Computed example of a mutant assay.
Amino acid sequence: MYSFISHIKFIFSATNQHGVHSPFVYSYITKGLYTKKKFATSKSVDILLKSIRYFNIKNLKINSESNLYLNNIKPNFPNLETKASQFEGIYLENCKDWNNTIIEKEIKNITWVFINNIHKSKEENTFWEKIKKQKEIKVSVDLFYCGILFFRKEQEKEHFKIRY
């Protein structure tokens, strides 16, 4: 029930690419997320795969034994590395997996963190709100099904809610 009510609230407060005033986020939405190619039926998996393609991710921190990796990521991106010392992308199944000490060691300016299920429960949503307020995170994109965090040092702190 929480997820349903949260989704209704989200729809009324979110925007599409026309409400975005950041060239970085606008480009990501229009050239990455809103492309016609569909990778998966699950919206969050589709967003993840489109993000990997748009940012041309070469190494992603994800459990290489997971079904998501084996069934969706590996077939579409066979050269993607999952065992590197620094990552361009980090996948977290939920907000509870956030660990500041690991994240801080592994981030680069271009790194993004994909967090699945940010509105699944009140607790997850509370975690999401805390995470996106951290000073290192400059841009957060809430797509309801998932959230994406960016560590762009050259950008002012901004939060976007985007309908997908």
Rank of each mutant, 00 (worst) to 15 (best):
K130C: 03
K74C: 10
F39T: 01
E156G: 07
K36R: 11
F150Y: 09
I148L: 12
K58Y: 09
I90G: 01
E93N: 11
Q86Y: 14
F12P: 03
K157C: 01
F160L: 07
I57T: 13
Y91Q: 00
E158S: 06
E156H: 13
W98F: 12
Q17K: 13
D142L: 01
S66L: 06
K36D: 13
L80M: 12
S6D: 11
N94S: 13
K138N: 08
I90T: 03
E65Y: 06
I57K: 06
F87V: 06
N125I: 01
F77P: 00
K61C: 07
K37L: 11
D142V: 00
K132A: 02
N100G: 08
N67F: 09
N76E: 14
T101P: 01
N16D: 15
T111I: 02
N59V: 10
Q134T: 02
K50W: 04
L49K: 08
K37P: 04
Q134V: 00
N76I: 07
V25A: 10
E81T: 14
K9A: 07
P78T: 12
L60N: 01
E81D: 15
S42D: 15
K153D: 12
V139R: 04
T126I: 11
K74A: 11
N67Y: 10
S51V: 07
Q17V: 10
I52H: 04
F10V: 06
Y69I: 03
W112D: 01
K135D: 10
K58N: 13
L48S: 04
S140H: 05
Y54Q: 13
K133R: 14
E158I: 03
K83C: 06
K43M: 05
L49M: 15
Q134S: 00
F127V: 00
L143V: 11
F24V: 11
N72L: 07
W98G: 01
W112F: 15
K37N: 10
F151E: 03
K9R: 12
I103T: 11
E104V: 10
K108I: 04
E104C: 09
A84W: 10
I131M: 02
I5C: 12
R163N: 15
E88A: 11
S22R: 06
I162H: 08
S42K: 14
Y26L: 09
S42T: 14
F39G: 01
S64G: 12
E156S: 14
N67V: 09
I11P: 02
I148R: 05
K161Y: 08
Y54R: 10
Y91D: 00
F87W: 12
Q17R: 08
L60F: 04
M1N: 14
N67P: 04
I162K: 06
K74D: 05
H21D: 13
S140E: 07
P78Y: 13
V20T: 07
I148S: 04
F10W: 05
N16A: 13
L60Q: 02
L48R: 05
I102P: 00
Y91L: 02
S51L: 08
T126W: 01
K96R: 10
E93G: 02
N56V: 10
N59M: 13
I47Y: 06
S42Q: 14
N79L: 14
H119W: 09
K83T: 10
P23T: 06
W128D: 00
I148G: 03
I115Y: 01
N117K: 15
S13C: 06
I57M: 08
P23W: 03
I148D: 03
Y34C: 09
N59S: 15
